[in-house]
């Protein structure tokens, strides 16, 4: 199955509040990775399940998440 979405988490901006983990309906973000500041931060653990809905990006208070969606179109 082709990938539907992708997120990029900026490790320098993430403060590890876990709001994105709470609101991801597909549960494809998880906590546990240690960031550059020495605190646990969010990381993209299940790239297959992501649909690119953008909710984690809206709800990130630190503007750390960029969300992309892949749209397949037939050639004209």
């Amino acid at each position: 199955m082709p990938k539907k979405g992708e997120i990029i988490i900026d490790e320098r901006l993430c403060k590890g509040c876990a709001l994105c983990v709470m609101f991801c309906s597909k549960k494809c973000i998880s906590m546990g990775k240690i960031g550059p500041g020495g605190i646990p931060i969010a990381h993209f653990s299940d790239p297959e399940a992501c649909t690119g809905c953008g909710v984690c990006g809206w709800m990130c208070p630190d503007m750390a998440i960029e969300v992309y969606e892949y749209v397949a179109r037939r050639p004209l």
Partner: peptide
Amino acid sequence: TAITKNLVC
């Protein structure tokens, strides 16, 4: 099929 990558957020 052409796959385009859109910036959502």
